[in-house]
Amino acid sequence: MITNEHIQEFLAQAHRVGDARLTICSSGNLSWRIGEEALVSGTGSWVPSLQAEKVSICNIATGEVKNGVKPSMESGFHLGILRERPDVNVVLHFQSEYATAVACMNKKPTNFNVTAEVPCHVGREIPVIPYYRPGSPELAHAVVEAMKDHNSILLTNHGQVVCGSNFDQVFERAMFFEMACRIIVQSHGDYSVLTPQEIEDLDIYVLGKKTK
C-alpha cells in the first residue's frame, strides 16, 4: 500500500534531482515502483518543486491511474521499463546541461568511457535513440527496448533516461552521465577513453566480477 511516507520520500528525491540541476522547470520526470503500483510525476509538473497533488499513482501492469492525477506524458516508457525489468524500481528521465548538449550534437560520441565511473556506474555502452516526438508511442517503444539490457540511454535532441534499483543508484548514474558529457564537451572533442582491457580490469578488481 502506498502511504504518505512514500509520497514524501518521492517528493524529496524529486527535489534532490532538481537541486542537482538534472531537471529544470517542467523538464524530466521520475517514477518509483511500490509493489504493483508506481508513483509517477504528474503531467506538466516541475520535478524540482514537485508537490504531492501532482504525483500520479499508476498500476504498473495496466497503466490505470488510481488517484485521478494524470501521469507524465512519458509514463509509457516509465511503466514499460518497470514491467520489463523486475530488478528496476526507479526510472529518471532528465535533461542536464552537458548531457543534453551532447544529445543535440550532429556527431555524437560512440564511447562515453572517459573515466572509470562511467563503465562502473553509468554503463559500458550507452545507446543513442533517434528523435521521436516526446510522449509518442514510438519513443516509449524505443526506450523500453533499449533499456531491456542497458541502464542509461541518450535521446537525440531530447535528453537522457537512467534506471536502477533505488534512488541513490539512479542519482549516481545520472550525475556521472552528466560528468562524462561535461568532459566530452569541455574537451572540445579532444578526449581519451578507457581501453577494453582497462574496463575489464575495473570489472575484476573494482567491481569484483568478470566481464560478460
Rank of each mutant, 00 (worst) to 15 (best):
F171Q: 13
A146T: 06
V143H: 01
E37T: 07
S72F: 01
K54V: 06
A52E: 15
V69N: 08
A61H: 11
L202D: 04
T211F: 07
D19C: 06
R124N: 14
G35P: 07
D149W: 10
G76W: 00
A12F: 10
V65G: 05
T211K: 10
A103L: 05
I81E: 10
G189A: 04
A38V: 09
P127A: 12
T23V: 12
H188L: 09
N111P: 01
V161T: 13
T195H: 14
V185C: 03
L92S: 08
Q197K: 14
E37Q: 09
D19I: 09
Q186A: 04
F77P: 00
G63S: 13
E198L: 02
Y205L: 10
S75H: 05
V114W: 07
D19G: 08
T23P: 14
E125H: 06
E172V: 14
K148L: 04
A103H: 10
L22A: 02
G68Y: 06
T62N: 02
N151T: 05
L139V: 00
E97N: 09
L39R: 03
S45H: 08
F94S: 05
C58D: 05
V162H: 11
P127V: 05
E117I: 07
A14L: 15
T62V: 08
N111C: 12
F77K: 00
V55E: 03
Q8F: 05
T156E: 15
I199A: 11
A174F: 08
L22Y: 11
A146R: 01
L82H: 09
V162T: 05
S45E: 09
G28A: 10
N4F: 13
P134S: 01
N29Q: 09
R85W: 13
I204C: 09
E5L: 02
H121I: 15
H141C: 07
E125I: 08
L82R: 06
Y98F: 15
S187G: 01
C120Y: 01
E36N: 11
N59T: 04
E200A: 15
V118M: 10
M1Q: 15
A116P: 03
H78S: 02
V91S: 00
F10R: 12
I57S: 09
L50G: 04
V55R: 00
M179K: 13
V47N: 05
N111L: 02
L207P: 03
E5A: 13
S49K: 13
A101H: 03
V40I: 14
D168A: 09
P196H: 15
Q169M: 15
I129G: 02
P119Q: 04
K212P: 11
D149N: 13
G159M: 00
